[in-house]
Write a protein that binds this DNA or RNA. Structure first.
Lengths: 123, 123
DNA sequence: GCTTATATGCAACCTGGTTGCATTAGAATG
DNA sequence: CATTCTAATGCAACCAGGTTGCATATAAGC
């Protein structure tokens, strides 16, 4: 399913800002914040962005994660994978290979590890 | 080591607000936010609280975790354990029994799961 | 007890994110 | 293709959690 199709199958309107949002998110390898998004789309309005993040999260098109700096990062919600947030360089890495544990009774939607990434361990 | 000793061994002064902060945190079963802390200590000053959270995090006396609502929660940094944040009731649970995986190259300081807790799954 | 650096408490501030509301523009209908 | 209706946008004002500057207080060493 293409990003645009994911919008319409959820009964949402295919608007210009939404097409651009999903197009830009499709080309990201890591979650990005509004601040970073706005560098790639200089015409976006802040409230349009955040309102769509909420809409897309409810439709499970986008997934949000909280950084260690009180910011929210977003990425396309494709194959589930944990994230690693480095507390030193604040980089967010997608751990595509890491296993997802089974916690009986709990339904896990996201996993976030925080700590020191390999690059920051070397210093 | 008592909480007070953890302060002095880090070269920090044993002040009245600090003693109260650690005393209150010692009696908590879950991480709490400033909002919740202030209900238990009505004389605390917001900046004193947050400055001490930073100091204590640096001294590894306190550990902070980000909620799914853009708030920060804190708990005494004792035995390392993952946390589960329910996206429906927003409760933070300590998963004392859950295993801590090994990610080669990464040093893990905290693990946060988000999703649906058993109570919210039943509804 | 005196001294000095550290910590407190208050107010002002910052910033990420939200809300209200008038306007715009998808999409369905005839 | 014009009309209609509702969802979505864009702007400005706002909110809340957390931080900062600075004068005052106080813990700890002598």
């Amino acid at each position: 399913m293409t990003p645009d199709e994911r919008i319409t199958t959820n009964g949402l309107r295919l608007t210009t800002p939404r097409k651009k949002i999903l197009s830009i998110f499709s080309s990201q390898a890591h979650p990005i914040s509004f601040e970073e998004y706005a560098l790639l789309d200089t015409t976006i309005d802040k409230s349009t962005f955040y309102r769509n993040m909420q809409t897309f999260e409810a439709a499970e098109i986008i997934q949000g994660i909280e950084s260690d700096e009180g910011k929210r990062y977003f990425e396309l919600s494709e194959k589930q994978h944990p994230h690693f947030i480095c507390q030193y360089c604040h980089t967010i890495t997608c751990l595509d290979e890491a296993p997802i544990p089974n916690l009986s009774g709990y339904r896990i939607n996201s996993i976030t590890y925080k700590g020191q990434c390999p690059l920051c361990s070397d210093i």
